[in-house]
C-alpha cells in the first residue's frame, strides 16, 4: 500500500497531505485536516452531504481516493466558502429564506449552490433544481433552498 505525499491547496492554504492512496478525500478532510463541516451520510455518492469543490467542479468526496488528486489540487470546503463573496451571499440568503432546518445537508447544499452560481450566475429555477439535485435534504422540501439560491444570485454583482 502506497502512502501519498502531496501538497494541495485547501481553502486557499497550501497543505501537505500524508495518507494511504486509497483514503477517501472525505476522510482526509475530516479526520486528517479536521475539516468536519463536510458531512458523511450515505458513503456512496447518493446524498451529496460530502460535496466539496475540486478544481472548480463539485464532487462527492466520499468517492474520490486521495491519490487521484495531484499536487496543487485546489479544494474548497464549507470552511473556505465563507471566505468568498459568493459564499457569504449564499449563506446569508439561506438564513434569510429559512432554508435551514436540521442543517446536516446544508454544508453540501451551500457548496453545490456555490458551484452552480460560479458557473451560472443567473440560473433559472430548473437550473437551480438541477444544480442541487445531487444533494438530498429530508427536512425542507427544497423550496426555501431554491428561493435562497435565487436570492443570492439576484445579489451577485452585475457583470458588465
Amino acid at each position: 500500500m502506497s502512502t501519498l505525499k502531496r501538497t494541495w491547496k485547501v481553502n486557499g492554504q497550501t497543505v501537505p497531505i500524508r495518507a494511504p492512496a486509497g483514503r477517501r478525500l472525505l476522510d482526509v478532510l475530516r479526520d486528517d485536516l479536521g475539516l468536519v463541516g463536510t458531512k458523511e451520510s450515505c458513503g456512496e455518492g447518493e446524498c451529496g452531504a460530502c460535496t466539496v469543490i475540486v478544481d472548480n467542479e463539485p464532487v462527492v468526496s466520499c468517492l474520490i481516493p486521495a491519490g487521484q488528486l495531484p499536487d496543487g489540487t485546489a479544494i474548497l470546503t464549507i470552511e473556505g466558502i465563507e471566505k468568498t463573496r459568493i459564499g457569504r451571499l449564499i449563506q446569508r440568503a439561506f438564513l434569510e429564506c429559512g432554508a435551514v432546518q436540521c442543517g446536516f445537508c446544508i454544508p453540501g447544499m451551500v457548496v453545490s449552490s456555490y458551484a452552480l452560481l460560479v458557473k451560472n450566475p443567473r440560473p433559472s429555477t430548473p437550473a437551480i433544481r438541477e444544480g442541487l439535485a445531487g444533494n438530498l435534504c429530508r427536512c425542507t422540501g427544497y423550496t426555501k433552498i431554491i428561493q435562497a439560491v435565487k436570492l443570492a444570485a439576484a445579489r451577485l454583482p452585475k457583470r458588465k
Binding site: M1, S2, P20, A21, G22, R23, R24, D27, P65, G67, Q68
Partner: peptide
C-alpha cells in the same frame, strides 16, 4: 482503516 485504504492504487 476504511476498505479502500487497503487497496494498493498506482497512479501512472
Amino acid at each position: 482503516m476504511k476498505i479502500t485504504e487497503t487497496i494498493d492504487i498506482r497512479f501512472p
